[in-house]
Amino acid sequence: MSHSVCVISSRAPYSGQSAREALDMALVSASYDIETSLLLIGDGVYQLLKGQETGQIPRKNLAAMLQVLPLYGIDTIHVDQVSLGERGISSDVLQEGVTVLAEGELPLFIQQHSRVFNF
């Protein structure tokens, strides 16, 4: 059976290591040639804001790291529309390469993957 993996990332980028460690999971999965999706929900949608400048904090720029995903075969990042709406974020302040999942699309999107890693 060929597997597919969904990595769900639900934390803001710099509050802890969760966002970074979820991204690492997605990169490892994709590098094993497994079809891999990264889904940002809840506070995870903050990872996609344009204009992140982390020079003054001791953390790598997560937005920049997300941009390497296409090199690993992850061509788009999926983001939950309801989570954006709850946080007052419109899609024009997000970086490129994002697919917005409309309300109600979440369960089916998650279920179409054979393994789900929640972070």
């Binding site: 639900s10 929900i41 809840g42 309801v82 989570s83 979440l106 369960p107 998650i110 279920q111």
Partner: peptide, 23 residues
């Protein structure tokens, strides 16, 4: 095909889970 959802925190986490649950 059914899913068991385990939830560890109330509030926002529960609400997120609820949105992924199907009949």
């Amino acid at each position: 095909m059914s899913t068991l959802h385990t939830v560890t925190k109330p509030g926002q986490v529960m609400a997120l889970c609820a949105r992924a649950v199907v009949s």
